[in-house]
Structure formats: structure tokens, C-alpha cells
């Protein structure tokens, strides 16, 4: 029986391929792409203000709403935040990746890789929650700052209009720290991968040719690790753009894209506006991916 079926398929390689590919593709195309496409269509509908009902007629008015100052502010704030988080993550990730890739003993390296990978997969929500404890007014970070008598510095920082707030947890600074923390592993791993591909002999050659360590670092290691940084930034940037859990969890009062989308579709019931707004991060990410591919980041993924 099975032999006959097997032979039947041997003579029809296209059918065999279709049988393999069919279920996953039907699922991904119908469920996932279908839903995305549906969302795109909704972004061209609009919400009737008085009735609160969605009018299924083609319009660009919903997109026009995105360009209202309040929404532009949200885009600007979120993009700046995503960029800042990306830069901070790259700065923190680099030394750890560099040490792991080039200096750790093999045994040590195995453990370091595990220590870096586990946070990547482990509960994102719990990792946000940890910072709710840490950033709390009566929590460990405030205690520590008081211990070091830095509370003056902190309140000075918080007094700034754009980054400050009533407390650390509620300020953009607090949110920034949380984002840097939760997306850090996504930056470390690609950098690690790209650094591992730099052969040690290359570093030795550079040293041999008379380069000082710092020169070698600047002229050899950084350029070679750069695709890794770009690859990592795809994640840190994209994840920050769309996140709404961290701002909500911390109780941040300023809107970010994710939060805005969440509340437009939830409490306001304005699905068209929410849909149009998600097109923002999608477009930003597509542009970002195109640039990243130019920079050779896809090899480091």
C-alpha cells in the first residue's frame, strides 16, 4: 500500500511538493496574510463619529488622521525611543559579545552563550514585571540611589520636560531602561554571530602589520561586526516600535505607537484608525529592512 503511494508520488514530484507545502502555506497565507490583508482593507474604512460604527467605504480620511499633530507626536516619540534603545543596546551588547566571541575559554563560552540565549526565549512579560519591582518609588533602585546620595541627580533628570516625569517608573527614562533590558539579547546574538566569523588570524595579521590594538579594533573588528549590529537593530527597533505591554505595565502617560493602537481598537473601538496606525511600523520596518539588506545584515541573522 505505502509502497504504491510512494511510487505514485515519485512519478509526480510536483504533487509531492504540493502535499508537503500545502498545509503550512494554506495556514500562513489564509490565516496570517489573509488577516494582514484584511487589516490593510480596514485602514481604508472609517469610523462614524456619532454612531461609533465602522463605515465600510473606501476613504483616505483615516490616514489623514495620522497626520494630526497628536498622532505625529506619537510617531516621533516612538521612533526616537526606538532609535535610542537601539543605540544603547548596541553599546551594552558589544563588549559582552566581543568577550564571548574572542576571549572566553571554550567551556566558559558554552555557558556564556546559554546565559545570553535564555533571556531571549524566556518570558518577556515576567522580564517587564521585574522592572516594575525595581523601578517602584519605594523599590530597590530608589533605595540604591538614596544610598549613593544621587537622588538630587535623579530629580534633576526627571525635571526635564521631554524625558522626565513624576517618578522614574512613569518617566520615559524608566521606559527606556526597560526596553533596553528586554531587547538586549536580540542585539547580543547577531553581534556574537558576526564576531565569531572574524578569524583570529585576521586580528593577528593586523597586529603583525603594525596596527595598535585600538587601531585593529577600529579598522578590522568594527567594520566586520557592523552587519551584526544592523541585524540586531532590526529586532530592537521593530520590537520597540510595536510594544505596548511595557508602557502600559509601567503606567506611562505618554502614548507610544503600540499603546495608541491598543487603545484605539480597544476602548475607542476605532479599528480603522488602529489599522492605519499599524501600517506606520510596517512601513518603517520595510524601509529599515531594505536598508539593512544593503548593509549586508541578513547574513548575520
Amino acid at each position: 500500500m505505502l509502497n504504491r503511494a510512494s511510487t505514485y508520488l515519485y512519478h509526480r514530484p510536483r504533487l509531492a511538493l504540493a502535499l508537503l507545502l500545502g498545509p503550512p502555506m494554506i495556514y500562513m497565507v489564509v490565516v496570517y496574510l489573509g488577516a494582514l490583508f484584511n487589516l490593510l482593507i480596514y485602514s481604508f474604512y472609517y469610523l462614524e463619529e456619532f454612531t461609533g460604527l465602522i463605515v465600510r467605504e473606501f476613504t483616505l480620511s483615516t490616514y489623514a488622521q495620522l497626520f494630526e499633530p497628536a498622532n505625529l507626536d506619537i510617531f516621533k516619540r516612538t521612533t526616537v525611543m526606538a532609535a535610542a534603545v537601539t543605540v544603547a543596546d548596541a553599546l551594552i551588547a558589544f563588549p559582552l559579545s566581543y568577550y564571548t566571541a574572542k576571549f572566553a575559554s571554550p567551556r566558559m563560552k558554552t555557558w556564556l552563550v546559554i546565559a545570553i540565549t535564555i533571556p531571549l526565549w524566556s518570558s518577556y512579560l515576567v522580564r517587564v514585571y521585574a522592572w516594575k519591582l525595581i523601578l517602584a518609588q519605594e523599590g530597590i533602585l530608589s533605595w540604591f540611589i538614596n544610598l549613593l546620595h544621587l537622588d538630587g541627580v535623579l530629580s534633576w533628570l526627571l525635571s526635564f520636560e521631554s524625558i522626565g516625569g513624576s517618578s522614574l517608573a512613569l518617566s520615559p527614562i524608566g521606559l527606556f531602561i526597560v526596553f533596553v533590558y528586554i531587547w538586549l539579547p536580540y542585539m547580543i546574538l547577531p553581534i556574537l554571530t558576526s564576531l565569531e566569523r572574524v578569524p583570529k588570524s585576521l586580528l593577528e595579521a593586523s597586529g603583525d602589520l603594525g596596527a595598535k590594538p585600538l587601531q585593529t579594533f577600529r579598522t578590522v573588528i568594527l567594520p566586520l561586526a557592523f552587519p551584526g549590529v544592523v541585524a540586531g537593530s532590526i529586532f530592537t527597533f521593530s520590537l520597540t516600535l510595536g510594544d505596548f505591554i511595557a508602557p502600559i505595565a509601567l503606567g506611562n502617560s505618554k502614548f507610544f505607537i503600540g499603546m495608541a493602537v491598543y487603545s484605539y481598537q480597544g476602548t475607542a473601538g476605532n479599528i480603522p484608525l488602529a489599522a492605519a496606525m499599524t501600517m506606520g511600523p510596517i512601513v518603517i520596518m520595510i524601509v529599515y529592512l531594505l536598508i539593512a539588506r544593503r548593509l549586508g545584515a541578513f547574513d548575520a541573522l
Binding site: 503550512p24 502555506m25 500562513m28 497565507v29 490565516v31 496570517y32 496574510l33 489573509g34 488577516a35 494582514l36 484584511n38 487589516l39 480596514y42 532590526i234 521593530s238 520590537l239 516600535l241 510595536g242 510594544d243 505596548f244 503600540g258 493602537v261 491598543y262 481598537q265 479599528i271 488602529a274 489599522a275 499599524t278 511600523p281 510596517i282 520596518m285 529592512l289
Partner: peptide, 24 residues
């Protein structure tokens, strides 16, 4: 590329797309 999209795009996109489709 299609398979990687759900983790490359922000989760909220998948979420709201599915929600809208279910509602629709």
C-alpha cells in the same frame, strides 16, 4: 520570508490583524 514575518513584525500587528479578521 512569509514564515519569519510573524516574529519580524511587531506582535501587535499580528494581534490586531487576527482580531480584526475574527471580528469581520
Amino acid at each position: 520570508f512569509l514564515l519569519i514575518l510573524p516574529i519580524a513584525l511587531p506582535g501587535i500587528v499580528t494581534g490586531i490583524a487576527l482580531r480584526t479578521a475574527l471580528g469581520g
